[in-house]
């Protein structure tokens, strides 16, 4: 999305840190659907998800100064905050982890197309394919850990399988994702 003459994210964040509401709303318009998408994915409940999305943007407003452009993108920072808020929300509600089936994340790729540069888009896309490609039990363990904040031990309890099995699934699954990430041509070109 470069070349449109709009200020880049890092500049918008600086403006937000100065209390610029217009800059804030620009970031909101750009990323609200991404943030909300993650909230919904994690909480699977529209009401709670909306609260988390709202909280995430309030954090963006109050914490803009802590954002460090050298350490990554605004969107990643915002999504990391969203994940943390959603996990807090789980604990607050003492929620049971979600049903055992996992949505196949490879089915819908449309959501990735918006608002991200082509480079990032292709990286996420290859990761998404790799995740979809995992054996279902590996993918499920990763989803329970990452999107629902369960420890290895909690996953074992939840799935009623031995801890060692969970460790193996997480290890194999994450190794495959790492490999998929590493052979991404763009990513490889950076090394």
């Amino acid at each position: 999305m470069s070349g449109t003459g709009l200020p880049d994210d890092a500049t918008l964040m600086q403006q937000v840190a100065q209390g610029d509401r217009r800059a804030f709303l620009s970031l909101y318009d750009k990323y609200a659907a991404r943030v909300h998408g993650l909230s919904v994915r994690m909480l699977q409940d529209g009401m709670s998800a909306e609260e988390v999305t709202q909280d995430a943007f309030l954090r963006l407003w109050t914490r803009a100064r802590t954002f460090n452009a050298d350490r990554g993108q605004v969107l990643s920072w915002l999504l990391a905050i969203t994940r943390r808020l959603a996990l807090d929300r789980f604990r607050l509600d003492s929620r049971v982890p979600p049903p055992l089936e996992t949505e196949n994340p490879g089915l819908d790729l449309d959501g990735l197309a918006d608002e991200s540069s082509r480079t990032d888009e292709s990286r996420w896309r290859s990761l998404r394919f790799a995740l979809a490609d995992l054996p279902a039990e590996q993918r499920l363990s990763i989803e329970l850990a990452f999107y629902h904040g369960l420890s290895q031990r909690e996953i074992a309890e939840h799935l009623k399988i031995p801890l060692g099995t969970v460790k193996t699934r997480l290890r194999l699954g994450m190794q495959k994702l790492r490999r998929a990430w590493a052979i991404d041509p763009i990513q490889a070109g950076r090394r």
Binding site: T53, L127, R178
Partner: peptide, 24 residues
């Protein structure tokens, strides 16, 4: 980086239109 990538995989969902005004 993989963990960061996982944050980006959720499908976009537009929040209720009132949220923008509420935040503002």
């Amino acid at each position: 980086q993989v963990a960061e990538g996982l944050l980006h995989l959720a499908t976009s969902v537009a929040p209720a239109s009132g949220l923008r005004a509420t935040l503002n």
